[in-house]
Design a protein around this nucleic acid. Structure first.
Lengths: 133, 133
DNA sequence: TCAATAATGATAACCATTACTGATTATAAT
DNA sequence: ATTATAATCAGTAATGGTTATCATTATTGA
């Protein structure tokens, strides 16, 4: 039985994720934590991100390409990825639990969850495109 | 303007993906193509998988962890991933286009598609668990 | 048939992530 | 408070999947 010990670095990493809502990569978290702990190691960031994710205190995001991203909001919700700028934003809509039931009717197993990423062009990029016409 | 030239290796790679329905990784495709072309290079496999995906003849799958997978079936459909064995299977259910509309109401941008992965335990693994009780 | 060039095989480089190391630090028992 | 312990750390090497480079080979249109 391994007892968790308190660590300032882990706090800083968790705080960073709670404070920002841009779903940062490990590298971005590293840069952020470095402001408080100038010689924190990238390995420490990865180790704690994984630990926190396994504990269920943060969530891992695999948005289709590029490095993994992390989310301090563990409540089930959907994400929208802009094809133009790559920005990942939260979608304030309810998760459709009934999709699991529907999907389960199509397969022999037991489905308990789903992950959905929406793709398109975000408002900012639409505006920019407009101006350049 | 770069014109595409025909290549036996690319044919073999595409055929492999059309023939099997287990959503193989690049490495698995490599192993398969090697039976016909014993000294095909892994780089060639990657290059052509990317080319074919960009041409829209196959699809890339990012199932949340592990290496990228590829799908010879480009028609929109959902996938189910077993947490136990990692197997990726197709779900014969309609894609819910209305989710895009719904999601778009929640964000300032333009949403054109979504990708959903369902997670759970597949029939095979449920059976195995049953026997071991 | 031949020149132009896309594609190949082999290999090196790349990048994100993980594993290893010995030193440090937080916790619990004395 | 002191000490024993084990978790955590910083630093760095190693790993694994993927991409880039380059000399050679294969395809194609004239």
């Amino acid at each position: 039985m391994k007892t968790l010990k308190h660590s300032r670095q882990r706090d800083a990493i968790l705080n960073c994720l709670m404070a920002r809502h841009d779903h940062p990569t490990a590298d971005a978290v590293y840069a952020s934590v470095r402001e408080e702990f100038p010689n924190v190691s990238l390995g420490t960031v990865y180790r704690n991100l994984n630990l926190l994710a396994d504990l269920g205190e943060i969530r891992r995001l695999n948005c289709g390409s590029g490095p993994e991203r992390f989310d301090g909001d563990t409540r089930p919700h959907y994400h929208f990825i802009c094809r133009e700028c790559g920005q990942v934003t939260d979608l304030p809509m309810n998760v459709l639990e009934q999709m699991n039931t529907k999907a389960q009717e199509c397969c022999g197993g037991k489905i308990d969850s789903h992950i959905t990423y929406f793709y398109g062009i975000c408002g900012d990029c639409l505006d920019k495109a407009e101006k350049h016409l």
